[in-house]
Design a protein around this nucleic acid. Sequence first.
DNA 1: AGCTTTAGGTAATGGTATTAGCTTTTAGCT
DNA 2: AGCTAAAAGCTAATACCATTACCTAAAGCT
Lengths: 187, 187
Amino acid sequence: MPRVGLNPAAVVAAGAALADEVGFANLTMGLLAEQVGVRTPSLYKHVGGQEDLNRRIAALALNEAADAVGGAIQGYAGRDALAAAARAFRAFVVEHPGRYAATIGMEPSGPDDPLATAGERLLGAFMAVLRGYEIGESDLDHALRMLRSLWHGFATLQAANGFQWSADIDESFEWLIAFADRGLRAL
Amino acid sequence: MPRVGLNPAAVVAAGAALADEVGFANLTMGLLAEQVGVRTPSLYKHVGGQEDLNRRIAALALNEAADAVGGAIQGYAGRDALAAAARAFRAFVVEHPGRYAATIGMEPSGPDDPLATAGERLLGAFMAVLRGYEIGESDLDHALRMLRSLWHGFATLQAANGFQWSADIDESFEWLIAFADRGLRAL
DNA sequence: AGCTTTAGGTAATGGTATTAGCTTTTAGCT
DNA sequence: AGCTAAAAGCTAATACCATTACCTAAAGCT
């Protein structure tokens, strides 16, 4: 039995990649084991089980999304930053639907859960966008939730093929960016 | 063995209620069978299986949501209609988190899938709201997608407890309604 | 070299969905 | 009313999945 040389990070990365490929709902321990060249029970040497694997994939996805959004807005402010953040976020969800699906409905178990940290990083990136607008303190939290709802809603609907008459999705997204920008500037 | 007198609609309704109670992820054929007072395999006389059950629950949820939103906007127009629709939609999701969760990521198999019809009904209710604003033809589809993304995103994030610092969610929602209203009027 | 740790394997358990085939109730027809 | 056939329910069996217990051998350390 030659050793494969796995570690938790490699297992989680392979799980995320597999989720993107076959869909998060179809990600199974057996399939992942086969993918990394090992028998199913051996995975338990690296992750606690399916639930733990899912949480780690979700945390990975949120961190990657935060990196993508945070990187995209570097050097931009105002509407440019908003557009860059929105596009980066949507691109991430479209390119990695499986791992992003892992984040839906996953709530952090505690304040030092890596999942919570990753989520806060993503929120921080969106918050940085809002700093480019002149928004009163009392509106900041609401505006942040608005952005999050809007991008999350659009991305998940698109990922689920929710827009049936599917023409012009890109155009709709750019329209959304302009709409949010006008609204934020009007505050 | 006294007959229970089940039928597909009753099974689906019980499944939706059970999903609301225990969470969609925990909805199992065995649990549903126990709930309706029958052994598990008997359910297959009424629904095709778990996948079919899930789709029917999703279609039921979308139809109910469409009824709720459509009913709420009767007699209102403009901002009042927008607020009524948004509140009705969110109330439905909050009161029926399990069955609404069934709709997430569920894509219609074809144009005459009952799921597609139900989705179109819900879209129609939102479209009725938009008719209360003076929106150019070219903006209508984009605006519809914006509303859908916004409410869907907010509802799913709240249902998933996605807003961790969870104070003032109601206030944020009212803020969102005002934000959308201002933006739509500015078109 | 010898020892300890650990990644990997096999075997077994429990839970789940699903199918096959049987039995009995019920509805429909005469 | 009585007969018949469809349908609703059941038990038994199968397959798959996650998980645990326990064993084996590879790798690292002294």
